[in-house]
């Protein structure tokens, strides 16, 4: 699924201008990492792409469908093809891991066919398959909030697998994980992405992870696209300008253990 973002602007009712004239085209199957300091509009852009925010200007289309023109069932239908991974995992903590994975079917199959009590045997088997894919089959019956952060993020990936997605939006998927768990989650996420040939838009704060996993780096600053390069091609000066600070060369090296975090 491809993404075409055309002249998008977003101003909140209080007058804060978060996005200014953003143009970005992402091809089907492309892996883009969005970079930028906190508050530069990365998360807002993702929310706009999901149709969770109304646009002040411009258009966004996913796979040829204009997000801002869709409503109700059609918008939900489009969203069901988009997998989202969040910084805080956003799972329903006091339900079982299994139930959370089954919720991946809510957009496609509706409520009754996504509840453990009433769903089809086929969906149950599929949920177990997805959990097994992320290596957590043995935790199916556990309460989700009893799992560690890294495990919860893997459950979120299993939920996304359950969903039949064509594109993945990941909003700082490893920001609340330690470096080791973060790397495991990134590996798993991109394995899944490559297996299913998915388009991916991933917001990251770790420059070395960005260089390692991205096919393309896009930098946002003050609501504008200011950087659009293949990985490892961005100069220190360009990245420093993006974050308004000095960049340590160790941060740019691939696979550095104990990586420095950009924030």
């Amino acid at each position: 699924m491809d993404v075409v973002i055309n002249g998008v602007g977003k101003t909140y009712p209080d007058g804060t201008e978060v996005l200014r004239n953003v143009d970005l085209t992402i091809g089907s199957g492309e892996g883009v990492v969005l970079l930028g300091a906190n508050g530069c509009g990365k998360s807002t852009l993702l929310r706009c792409m999901l149709g969770l925010e109304t646009l002040s200007q411009g258009t966004i289309s996913l796979g040829g469908q204009s997000v801002s023109q869709l409503k109700g069932r059609q918008l939900r239908q489009l969203r069901s093809q988009i997998g989202s991974v969040f910084q805080q995992f956003n799972l329903v903590g006091n339900l079982s891991v299994f139930q959370n994975v089954l919720f991946g079917r809510l957009g496609n199959d509706g409520l009754l066919r996504s509840l453990n009590l009433t769903c089809s045997q086929e969906n149950r088997e599929r949920a177990m398959y997805c959990l097994d894919r992320v290596g957590l089959a043995q935790f199916a019956a556990k309460r989700t909030d009893s799992l560690s952060g890294g495990q919860q993020q893997r459950v979120a990936i299993a939920r996304m697998l359950m969903q039949d997605v064509r594109i993945v939006f990941a909003d700082e998927p490893v920001a609340s994980l330690d470096p080791k768990a973060g790397r495991e989650v990134m590996d798993l996420l991109f394995e899944v992405v490559h297996e299913h040939k998915l388009t991916v838009v991933c917001v990251l704060h770790q420059l070395e992870l960005a260089n390692e996993y991205a096919q393309r780096l896009v930098g946002l600053k003050a609501g504008r696209v200011v950087l659009d390069l293949p990985p490892n091609k961005a100069s220190k000066a360009e990245l420093a300008a993006l974050y308004d600070r000095e960049i340590d060369s160790a941060e740019l090296l691939n696979g550095t253990e104990g990586a420095c975090y950009a924030n």
Binding site: L50, L52, R76, Q77, L78, R79, S80, Q81, I82, G83, S84, F86, Q88, N90, L91, V92, G93, N94, L95, F103, G104, L106, G107, N108, G110, L111, S114, L115, A156, R159, M160, Q163, F169
Partner: peptide, 28 residues
């Protein structure tokens, strides 16, 4: 609100978000 947003982002309807994310959290 976050678990509910996640379900909404995956295409869940209003009713599904309430039944899937809101009520389970409030149940106890």
């Amino acid at each position: 609100p976050k678990p509910g947003v996640a379900l909404k982002a995956s295409g869940a309807s209003r009713t599904s978000v309430i039944a899937g994310a809101v009520l389970p959290e409030c149940f106890p």
